[in-house]
Design a protein around this nucleic acid. Structure first.
Lengths: 155, 155
DNA sequence: TATTGTTATACTCTATAACTATA
DNA sequence: TATAGTTATAGAGTATAACAATA
């Protein structure tokens, strides 16, 4: 269990996400891009540089393989991704973003990363402090750092 | 559009939420409490101190009234909330948390507000800095401050 | 025999349309 | 006539089970 200040800091972040201006953000991004939340999540999860085995998505999200089939079908229908057989293991299929898919992904991130007003209203000094602190936080996150190491090694 | 530091700070927060340790948090809390995400959201949205008109939930979330009916039915079946007729306008029904519902809500918040490891690993000074900065951010959030003003006035 | 992915199917979540009660 | 909520129903979203292909 964290310290009191840690709890309060996190509580503010949670509040911002669940109740603040940021709450409708994901929804708005989906509407703008024209994808449902599942397809959006898939789009932003897929690496723009590497083939992703479908199996990896089921593991990362803890969802059923048949649902991943549905999601990849959805991106394929819209021309945002294609399936490719794995080079060495022909049971495996990998997913690759098409050029259109990569552009769409960039656009999604641009919208998603637009900061809420509460952050913009901080002073320049405070904004940099917050940036530095949050960078430390993500650097220290066990899941994120595990992923950073494993990205290319992802089979 | 925000400044560069604001964007980067927000980007880290989004990453923490969508990809970091925090990502499964909501899911885990639901599993622990035994409610699906919709019921959980309803539980934490309902004020423990005041009756909430059902209409208010449909407006706040932008969902259909029939879905709110389903959600309130769900909480009622579990003994976490009850419906009460509005005092002056008998068309309106309000939702009230039962004592069990209030306890459950407290528990949900306790789990939800438990900070991720990345924050706990900051130094004590940094944790307090982050807390202060995030407090400023939520204080400056237009949606949150509008709600804070309107809470009691919510008819 | 075990693993990856697909198909067929069923269950859960959420919305639309028609309705009742009240204003 | 307009508004709050419910009921019946239909449509997404997601899982389970049985299966085909490959290891």
């Amino acid at each position: 269990m964290g310290t009191r200040p840690a709890q309060e800091a996190w509580k503010s972040i949670v509040t911002l996400f669940f109740e603040g201006e940021a709450h409708r953000r994901m929804h708005d991004v989906c509407a703008d891009i024209g994808l449902n939340p599942g397809l959006m999540k898939t789009l932003i999860t897929l690496s723009p540089d590497a083939d992703t085995p479908m199996r990896e998505l089921t593991e990362r999200w803890g969802v059923d393989a048949s649902y991943v089939t549905t999601l990849v079908d959805g991106l394929e229908e819209k021309g945002l991704a294609t399936r490719r057989p794995h080079i060495t293991d022909r049971r495996v299929k990998t997913v690759v973003l098409t050029p259109a898919g990569k552009r769409m992904r960039e656009r999604a991130f641009a919208l998603l990363h637009e900061p809420p007003k509460g952050i913009c209203r901080l002073s320049a000094v405070e904004q940099r402090q917050l940036r530095d602190l949050m960078r430390k936080v993500t650097d220290a996150d066990p899941v994120l750092s595990a992923r950073a190491e494993g990205t290319v090694a992802a089979r």
